[in-house]
């Protein structure tokens, strides 16, 4: 559990674009042995949603929102030395942002949570063209595809992408999530039987059961 004072100091520094202070706070938490999942859910995810909310309400500028994302993205680098050490399960996931979607950090955090649970993840980043993603899925043959959507207006692109994936890989499990879904789940999502909407990083583990798999070795 992250202390409220810690959270408030971090959030203030984040909004002020003070990367160094944010880095110090994250380092302190890491030194204290915070669980990576807790750091992701209670600090990174929570602040990003809060900042997104401020942006949607015209309380902060696009530039400020981008600065916050860029700082958070650089802070994820501090976590990586702790992230990939876990024992592996024999599961692979491809994680991507929908075409035209430039906000990649949510998808990356999903990939990181999967890594923490022993999955091998392939993170394709922002604005991945559909044909390239299909080719990559064909090569890697993942157990799951994760698609992140932050901007509500990109739902049509997401739908097209899901249709294309479903046509080529009908058995592939697909998870979707991201800030765009805060405005409500689109009805078309129910048309795809292998599609799962994941509302938060917490629910990624709880609902989708990604940590139910037995690890290969201790």
């Amino acid at each position: 559990m992250i202390d409220q004072d810690f959270y408030d100091n971090y959030f203030r520094a984040l909004l002020n674009g003070d990367r160094l202070t944010c880095g110090k706070i994250v380092q302190t938490l890491l030194d204290q042995g915070i669980e990576i999942k807790v750091l992701y859910r209670q600090l990174f995810e929570k602040t990003l949603y809060e900042v997104g909310h401020l942006w949607e309400n015209n309380k902060i500028s696009v530039a400020r929102e981008h600065l916050v994302t860029a700082i958070t993205e650089s802070l994820l680098n501090m976590v990586y030395p702790h992230l990939f050490k876990k024992n592996r399960v024999s599961k692979k996931a491809v994680i991507s942002c929908a075409a035209n979607e430039y906000h990649q950090i949510g998808g990356k955090m999903v990939a990181d949570i999967l890594e923490l649970n022993g999955w091998d993840t392939y993170f394709l980043g922002a604005n991945t063209p559909t044909d390239q993603m299909l080719a990559f899925i064909g090569d890697i043959k993942p157990d799951m595809l994760g698609l992140s959507l932050s901007i509500y207006f990109n739902f049509p692109a997401l739908k097209q992408e899901i249709e294309a994936v479903n046509a080529s890989f009908p058995q592939l499990d697909i998870i979707v999530g991201g800030q765009a879904f805060r405005w409500g789940k689109m009805p078309f999502l129910d048309d795809f039987k292998n599609l799962h909407y994941i509302a938060s990083l917490d629910l990624l583990e709880k609902e989708f059961g990604i940590n139910d798999n037995k690890v290969d070795s201790e």
């Binding site: 993205e73 990586y80 990649q104 890594e115 980043g125």
Partner: peptide, 16 residues
């Protein structure tokens, strides 16, 4: 921003 994202993705890949 794009360069920052690319760098961050490469750093992640490198750690992996």
């Amino acid at each position: 921003l794009e360069l920052n994202e690319e760098l961050s993705n490469l750093t992640r890949e490198l750690h992996k």
